[in-house]
Design a protein around this nucleic acid. Structure first.
Lengths: 348, 348
DNA sequence: TTGCTTCGCACAATCGATTGTGTAAAGTAA
DNA sequence: TTACTTTACACAATCGATTGTGCGAAGCAA
């Protein structure tokens, strides 16, 4: 910037203000500065700017990990929306570990991020480390795995609705003994999926049966294990709603291994729309989580808060509607033309 | 920092030097400063530090996208290694578009990153925009999709070896007319996979047959289309080596649709170890790309260059060995016990 | 005690951009 | 022409941490 100022025989003040379109700079001068800046391909030092202004153009993300289908897609959406708004994103993985989550937050704070997007680690039971953000005036938006309540900003999928839609669909297929593979209940998402399951059953006049609910850590093996358990019961289920695709798949494998036909003897539905659900045989009915929209919605909300800095901002919770994807693993009633499944993931 | 200095009745100089363990500060004072810093939970402003020192603790990543299996896993490895070394990573997506790749670089430069990791966009044919990095003294390491040559730092999978291993394996299974679904040849990875295919054929004394090579954009549909084309030939192939899992899967679907048995009538091998390859029927033989190792290796190399700043650093190319994963889609000879496939992806 | 080295710390400039305040010059109204 | 407003820009302080230089005090040998 000093070079530009020298060459134009003006002060750095003028250059700075010309570049930021300040009213006190004449249009002629603005043009000259802009042209020269382009000529020299001038790029402002954002650190210096951030230091002086106290606000950077950086957003922080803290996710449990960047693998599988869900988080990468959300991050994809976040980065897309953020870069469109002129922000860069710093990404941190908590690896499902509170301590690392805490460290990530510290790291983001010292990097002077303008705001933070968080999806809680599985081991986070105490939320005090997030207070530091508030104390420093750094806006926070949770997504997917959130702290529940009216006082936080959050973007979530309506997991209850997802659980409801899946269970309702299984009921519609004529299933009456629907088992549920539940996930860790301290995470809002799994709790809500289970709630949706309950709601659909109640609506159908079926009493919930604790025998039909198995708590798992969502892994494929545990799904298989749960299935063994369920099939050993005197009156085994005629359908399974898994809180995740991996455990649903494990359950399906075990059922097939034991000679059951899917969906005729046992209908199966999962959750998350993992890409592999499309290529299993049969393809697994699942719930799409609107990953990319979730990322974009989270960024929109965060930027809104950032722009409202100073003003009081009433915390808001954005709820996205899940989409039920009906596939052969649960389709008992309607005989559909066998569609060739097309993976819409990225090829490589 | 000013607060600490005031409370201890020393200068900020002393505080700063005590915290960075400078020799000119006495051990007693160091202890006092450290203790007070801990008490007040002091966190240095990394922007200010970076501004003064001219070097930040930020690394930039530019990838085509963050979806599918490959890039998220690499990014996962990068973030893991970087955070262990005290760095944060800023992530940018080029969306397979040169213009956006260019913008991403500018953005990272103005964020004053200490180094950049790049995987080229599919549309990048001209590499001049990377010169700006060199001009500004910002180290650059390419990974996977690289600019070829001895003069750049790069971490790649030995794609040629991968292609060789796959083709060799198919030959070992008794296949003699092995088709190849090739990818865009201006990307090193696809060119090399094809080269490995050629090498294996030559080694086996088989002349390459242009009729058996179909150029695709790696999508599932194009794989199916290619298969139709190949099966319509007078002497159709008895095996297919796809440059990617998606197109290999497309090919397999089409073959099955036309009544061929896999692997008996047609053996199939893909590339990338996409998670879905484990659950197709039959599961698809593929090549694991060592995604996470690639990310970690790239960070190691980049940090080495950063630390060697000033010193002359001879560009280095790191080559990772691919791993052939033999699965039923290509296993003609040996009858193996049917293993239950276990997805080791992240559940959700 | 003198002279010299070493230790421990402070002063002040610096990184690059921003911004409140001050001030000429130009323009306007009376 | 005088008085006043507006325009266009410069000065200098500032954000928070770092660092070359300088200086007093303590330690040591002679």
């Amino acid at each position: 910037m000093a070079d530009l100022a020298r060459e134009l025989n003006v002060s750095m003040t003028t250059v700075s203000r010309a570049l930021s379109d300040h009213f006190s700079i004449g249009p002629a001068m603005k043009q000259k500065v802009l042209k020269l800046a382009k000529k020299y391909n001038y790029q402002p030092n954002r650190m210096a700017s951030a230091l002086r202004k106290g606000k950077s153009k950086l957003l922080g993300i803290v996710v449990p990990y960047i693998e599988g289908r869900f988080f990468p897609s959300v991050v994809h959406g976040i980065e897309k929306a953020a870069s469109k708004a002129g922000y860069n994103v710093i990404i941190c993985q908590s690896n499902e570990d509170v301590a690392q989550e805490r460290r990530s937050l510290d790291s983001l704070l010292s990097a002077q991020v303008a705001g933070v997007l968080v999806s809680l680690s599985r081991t986070t039971l105490d939320y005090r480390h997030f207070d530091k953000l508030r104390a420093r005036g750094v806006p926070l938006v949770y997504f997917d795995r959130v702290v529940e309540g009216e006082s936080v900003n959050a973007v979530v999928l309506d997991d209850r609705e997802g659980g409801y839609l899946s269970t309702r669909h299984l009921l519609d297929q004529g299933c009456r003994r629907i088992a549920h593979l539940a996930g860790p209940q301290h995470l809002n998402i799994y709790k809500n999926r289970r709630q949706g399951y309950f709601d659909a059953l109640r609506e159908a006049g079926l009493p919930p049966d604790e025998e039909l609910i198995v708590y798992t850590d969502m892994q494929q093996q545990q799904g298989a294990e749960a299935m063994r358990q369920l099939l050993a019961q005197p009156s085994p289920p005629d359908a399974v709603f898994g809180s995740g695709d991996y455990c649903a798949f494990g359950a399906m494998q075990e059922a097939k291994r034991q000679g059951l036909r899917v969906p005729d003897d046992l209908a199966i539905a999962g959750f998350s729309n993992e890409s592999f659900t499309l290529v299993t045989e049969p393809a697994i009915t699942t719930i799409d989580q609107r990953c990319e929209e979730m990322g974009q919605a989270a960024v929109r909300l965060l930027l809104e808060i950032i722009e409202a800095q100073g003003t009081l901002f009433t915390p808001r919770q954005v709820v996205l509607r899940p989409e039920l994807l009906v596939r052969p693993s649960s389709q008992r009633r309607v005989e559909v033309a066998e569609a060739v499944p097309v993976l819409n993931g990225r090829m490589y």
